[in-house]
């Protein structure tokens, strides 16, 4: 049992499974292939169940903050089946294609949006040794992939042949690009402290020493702010801006196409929560409980925190948002990198 905790629950289970498969097939390549597929299935399962759980959670959190009860009809007193009812509704909705839209680009946009947000999950260390692809340029690759999410928004906005969608698409580009920069610089400090771009190393360093939220508080704040902007949630939901530009880039989508946007949104929400956990809150490290439990506790707390922010704060304006990014967050992040560098230098010199 202790050995299991030592090596991580997920890794142990995977090891046992691999041994059984090896016994069954006796072929290294086939076993690896099957293990990869199981991993992919697990990650997709995490994303889908996250979307289901989070739609319910968001409704409940929103309702509780707004002194309401939230879903309380479908599936008992607590409305547990509400997300499934939502799903059914979305699936049974008519697929409306606006007149004069660019059909191919329009249809591609929601699918392309889902790809980078799902791909990012490959690099998340869910538990000790439970990283799907623990590449040595993990952080770099992660940022590179997640910034691809800009394009589908622009595609959707452009192809919808709708004025609101067009404005939404334009806003997305401005917002996501300008928040990419401070986000990267806020992570740079951590990379400097760890000395590695590997995700598992970052967590391992925190598990051995101290959580980076204590060493890099400024970077943490910058990262949380930029993460809210990257996921297009209030106070930075200008891309959707329901009361201004209706629903922005996906104003014209309905039914399952819209559901894909929705899925990507919640996948992104979980992704940034996991990133915050991994980079600043020590990932799977924690006493007594298995690592995977700690990991999910922290990640879900971050999800709740983002929801809490969303249902409290009003929306900023586009010029205020951009000037916050370029005039405040970016210099702050750069200064943080500098200070970290000096700090690391002094530490080594001592």
């Amino acid at each position: 049992m202790n050995a299991m905790l030592e090596n991580g629950v997920v890794a142990t289970v995977a090891g046992v499974l691999r041994e059984y498969l090896m016994l069954l097939f006796g072929n290294q390549f086939l076993t690896d292939l099957i293990m990869k597929f199981i991993g992919i299935g697990a990650v997709i399962g995490v994303i889908l169940s996250a979307a289901i759980v989070f739609t319910y959670a968001e409704r409940k959190v929103c309702a509780f903050i707004q002194v309401r009860l939230g879903p309380n009809r479908v599936g008992g007193r607590f409305g547990l089946l509400q997300p499934f009812a939502d799903m059914l509704k979305l699936m049974s909705k008519e697929d409306i294609i606006p007149a004069g839209c660019d059909r191919v680009v329009w249809a591609l946009s929601p699918m392309l949006l889902f790809v980078p947000s799902a791909l990012a999950y490959a690099f998340f260390p869910f538990d000790k040794g439970a990283v799907f692809a623990d590449v040595n340029v993990g952080v770099f690759l992660l940022i590179a992939i997640s910034s691809q999410a800009v394009l589908p928004f622009l595609m959707g906005g452009y192809a919808s042949n709708s004025k609101y969608a067009m404005i939404g698409g334009m806003r997305t580009v401005a917002q996501m690009l300008s928040y990419e920069a401070p986000m990267v610089f806020s992570l740079l400090g951590i990379v400097m402290l760890t000395g590695s771009l590997k995700m598992s190393d970052i967590v391992a360093v925190q598990a051995d020493n101290v959580w980076f939220v204590l060493l890099q508080p400024v970077a943490f704040v910058i990262f949380v702010i930029t993460a809210t902007a990257e996921t297009n949630r209030t106070p930075f939901d200008l891309v959707e801006g329901e009361s201004e530009i209706v629903a922005g880039a996906f104003a014209e989508y309905s039914g399952m196409r819209w559901a894909l946007f929705f899925l990507a949104e919640y996948a992104n929400l979980l992704a940034v929560s996991i990133l915050t956990t991994t980079f600043f809150l020590g990932g799977w490290s924690g006493p007594v409980l298995p690592g995977v439990v700690w990991f999910w506790l922290k990640a879900l707390f971050m999800v709740f925190f983002f929801m809490w922010l969303r249902w409290t704060l009003p929306r900023t304006r586009i010029d205020q948002m951009l000037s916050l990014s370029w005039k405040v967050l970016l210099p702050l992040a750069l200064a943080n990198v500098m200070c970290t560098g000096i700090g690391v230098y002094i530490y080594r010199w001592l």
Partner: peptide, 22 residues
Amino acid sequence: GLMTGMGITIRHFFGRKATFCY
């Protein structure tokens, strides 16, 4: 101000609800 607002919403999160199940 943001923190004060967050304090109010979290208090209501755990507080009594006004819904009346019609």
